[in-house]
């Protein structure tokens, strides 16, 4: 993994003949791609400041007035504010829980030999490949029987359960890779299994935990099917559901400006998180592929 960062790139190089066209073409293609990526996002941002009339008038026109009315409308009237808070609560809690439970489970599976270990591992692996659709209907009734249907705890526990296989799968190999001497040293020092895990192993797993946490955050924040199908109480809606309601919007007074604003509000937190953590994320991807 270190190869990525330590490759010497400092030597000054004189461009060779025939290199320039290649470089130009490369840049051309990449710039075009970046425009293709950024333009729709900028357009969305721009449109979020327009009134509906302006939106319909021209795709390019600038808003007559740069006001946050659309944002206020989306935030309050469309329930985006509540949904934002719900999403933060659900994703935050689920993230902490799944990281905790996932690392615990991965640690046990990865570092202890016992009967059925393999079976559990493969079962988790299988859980990764089933289409969620298949589970939705029975899951609905499972939650209902537990009295958790349409509640935030119900959604959290579902998120945790469905994020678990991925978390375990990833951290499993990470814990396996940690040197065995350390836990043994801890054992000799008289630390019990609990303390060994929380005070020795978990801190050592931090880099792996960070990568998984980022992926889980993105995955949970972008979660769609589970909340749409299982989180029926409007008061408990998460962001994806509010966005979905703009699309179907059966029966709501429509507000196109607010729809763009809602999209922006949904995107910005993940985008900011990405930009802040992008080094970490890229590091973790290389880490995975270099293993």
């Amino acid at each position: 993994m270190s190869a990525t960062t330590t490759r010497p790139q400092t030597r000054k190089v004189v461009p060779a003949k025939g290199d320039r066209p290649v470089a130009v073409a490369s840049h051309g293609a990449l710039v075009l791609w970046c425009v293709l990526v950024i333009a729709p996002m900028l357009w969305t941002l721009l449109s979020s400041f327009k009134t509906s009339g302006e939106i319909f008038a021209s795709p390019f026109g600038l808003p007559a007035e740069w006001s946050f009315t659309n944002y206020a409308n989306a935030w309050v009237d469309s329930g985006l504010g509540d949904a934002f808070i719900n999403t933060v609560i659900v994703v935050g809690t689920a993230l902490v829980l799944v990281m905790l439970l996932g690392s615990m489970c991965a640690y046990v599976l990865g570092r202890f030999e016992f009967f059925g270990r393999r079976a559990i591992y493969y079962l988790m692996l299988a859980g990764l490949t089933f289409p969620v659709f298949l589970a939705i209907v029975p899951l609905f009734f499972v939650l209902q029987n537990l009295g958790l249907l349409g509640t935030l705890p119900g959604l959290i526990v579902t998120y945790v359960s469905f994020a678990l296989p991925f978390t375990v799968f990833f951290l499993y190999s990470f814990f396996r890779g940690l040197p065995v001497e350390i836990s043994e040293a801890a054992a000799i020092d008289g630390a019990g299994e609990w303390r060994t895990f929380f005070q020795v192993m978990l801190p050592m797993a931090r880099p792996g935990m960070a990568s998984v946490a980022i992926f889980n955050f993105l995955g949970l924040w972008n979660q769609f099917l589970l909340p749409v199908a299982l989180n029926t109480d409007r008061d408990n809606w998460v962001l994806a559901q509010v966005l979905a309601s703009f699309i179907s919007s059966a029966g709501y007074a429509v507000d196109f400006g607010a729809m763009f604003a809602a999209a922006v509000v949904t995107i910005v937190p993940v985008l900011v998180a990405y930009i802040v953590f992008q080094r970490q994320l890229q590091g973790s991807v290389s880490q995975g592929t270099m293993k």
């Binding site: 969620v132 991925f166 990833f170 995975g288 592929t289």
Partner: peptide, 22 residues
């Protein structure tokens, strides 16, 4: 879509081909 996005969001876990417990 779920599995915290791992599979269905097209997010591969950070590993090469899953080949079982090492």
């Amino acid at each position: 879509m779920t599995l915290s996005g791992s599979v269905i969001d097209g997010q591969p876990p950070n590993q090469t081909t899953p080949t079982g417990p090492v």
